[in-house]
């Protein structure tokens, strides 16, 4: 059964940036973009690398290791070397706090 978990305050992620959120033994990436807040799996689908070390350009996250790119809003793999999409998770903002549904 999924529930909402508080990630951080809305001001704790710079605009056009990403932070890591750990829950259980899993790693998530939570983004603040021009289109709002989003969340995906936190590890690149290409090689084991935390995406929160990467950079956000518009609504694209680029993996720091090999510059594989994903669309943040739907997790779509955009360019080599990544070819497997990222899983995405629902996010909501309430009272200046960001929540992820897991």
């Amino acid at each position: 059964m999924s529930e909402w978990h508080r990630v951080c305050g809305t001001d704790e992620i710079d605009e056009e940036d990403v932070i890591q959120f750990n829950h259980g033994d899993k790693v998530y990436a939570v983004y603040n973009t021009e289109k709002g807040f989003f969340a995906t799996d936190g590890i690149c689908t290409h090689e084991h690398q935390e995406l929160a070390d990467g950079i956000v350009i518009g609504t694209v996250i680029e993996c720091p290791l090999h510059q594989g790119r994903f669309e943040i809003t739907d997790g779509c793999a955009l360019s080599a070397p990544v070819c497997i999409d990222l899983k995405t998770y629902p996010v909501k903002v309430e009272n200046n706090n960001v929540f992820i549904e897991l």
């Binding site: 690398q49 935390e50 070390d53 990467g54 950079i55 680029e62 720091p64 290791l65 510059q67």
Partner: peptide, 11 residues
């Protein structure tokens, strides 16, 4: 160490 330099190199 790790991917610490990636952001700066990309920028």
């Amino acid at each position: 160490k790790g991917a610490t330099v990636a952001k700066e190199v990309r920028m």
